[in-house]
Write a protein that binds this DNA or RNA. Structure first.
Lengths: 154, 154
DNA sequence: CGATTTCTGGTGACGTGTCAACATCGCTGG
DNA sequence: CCAGCGATGTTGACACGTCACCAGAAATCG
C-alpha cells in the first residue's frame, strides 16, 4: 500500500459524521424500539421479512439472505426469539437439513404494533433532517459504496 | 404521531443504503483490523485517543467523553484490554474516585502498526467511492443529522 | 452406485454493549 | 461540620455477533 495518505479535512468530516451517525442513530432507534414496542433491533429486523412472507413462514436460509446475516447469527437470534415466543421453529418438508421459522401470533402482534413508530423515528431522526437534493445525492452514493464492498469475504 | 407515513422510494433508497453500509462497512473494517493488526474495532477506538494524549495517559472519564462511550462500556473494555496488555489502570492522584488509563508499550506498538492500513481501508471502501461533490454534500448533511439527535437521553 | 464435496443448521467460547445496581468520593447547603 | 446530592467507576446479568467446529443431508462426480 506504499504511502499511507491520511484523510484531509473534507474527508475526515464525512468519516467522523458517518461514525457518529452510525453510533448515535442506531442507539436512538434501538431505545425507541425497546421502549415503545419491547422489541430489540435484531428482533425487529427478523420480524419484518417474516411478517411479509406468505403464511409468516420462511426457511432460515432465505431469512438469512434477506437480512444479510450468516447462518450462525440467524440461528442464535431465532433461539432467543423462540424463548420469547415471537417465532417458532419447524422442520422443513422439502429439505431435511432445513429449518423453517414461523411467526407466532405474538410475533405478528409485536411487529404490527412496532412498525409505525419505528418508521416515524427513522423519519424524525434521519430522513427528515435531509433535503430532497441531499436524498438524491446520498442514495446513489451509498449504493455505489455498497456495490464496491466485498460481498462476503475478501 | 397521528398518521404513520411510510418512506417513499427515494427515502427508502437512502435508508436501505444507510443500513447496508452500516452493517457491511463496519464488518469489512473490523475484519481488516483484526486480520492485519490483531486489534478489534473497540480496541482501536480507545487506543487512538490514548496514543494522542500527552504521556499516553487519560482519565477514564475523559476517555469516555472523547469517544462518546458511557462509563460502564469504558470500564468493561479497559478490563479486557488490560488482560491483553494493551493498557494499564492507575489510580488518579487528584480524584480518589478516578481511574487513569495508561497506554502500554505493547499498546502503542499495536496502534502505530494498525493505523495506516486502517485509514487506507477507510479510503478504499468508503471515502474513495465518493466524489468530491458528494463529500461536500454528505459532510454537512451528516453533521445536521448528528446535531438533531438527542445528546444522551430523550 | 459410492465417495467426496457442498449446503445447511446448531453449538460453545469469547468479545462486545446496555442496564441496573452498588460503592466511593467530592461538593454544596443547612 | 455533616447530610445529602451528584459524579465516577466497577460489577453482574443479559442480549448480541463472530468464529471455529461439528453433524447431517443433498448434490456431484467418478
Amino acid at each position: 500500500m506504499g504511502e499511507a495518505r491520511w484523510l484531509d479535512e473534507r474527508e475526515a468530516r464525512v468519516w467522523r459524521g458517518m461514525i457518529g451517525v452510525l453510533q448515535r442513530l442506531t442507539a436512538v432507534l434501538e431505545r425507541q424500539l425497546v421502549q415503545d414496542a419491547g422489541l430489540s433491533g435484531a428482533e425487529y429486523t427478523l420480524l419484518v421479512p417474516l411478517s411479509e412472507a406468505p403464511g409468516g413462514v420462511l426457511r432460515a436460509r432465505d431469512l438469512g439472505r434477506m437480512v444479510g446475516w450468516e447462518r450462525s447469527r440467524i440461528s442464535h437470534q431465532v433461539t432467543r426469539m423462540e424463548k420469547r415466543g415471537l417465532v417458532a421453529r419447524e422442520e422443513c418438508s422439502e429439505d431435511a437439513r432445513g429449518s423453517m421459522v414461523r411467526l407466532t401470533d405474538a410475533g405478528r402482534t409485536a411487529i404490527v404494533a412496532a412498525a409505525p413508530a419505528h418508521v416515524a423515528a427513522v423519519r424524525q431522526h434521519f430522513i427528515g433532517a435531509l433535503t430532497d437534493a441531499e436524498l438524491d445525492v446520498i442514495g446513489p452514493a451509498l449504493e455505489r459504496v455498497l456495490n464496491r464492498l466485498p460481498d462476503d469475504d475478501g
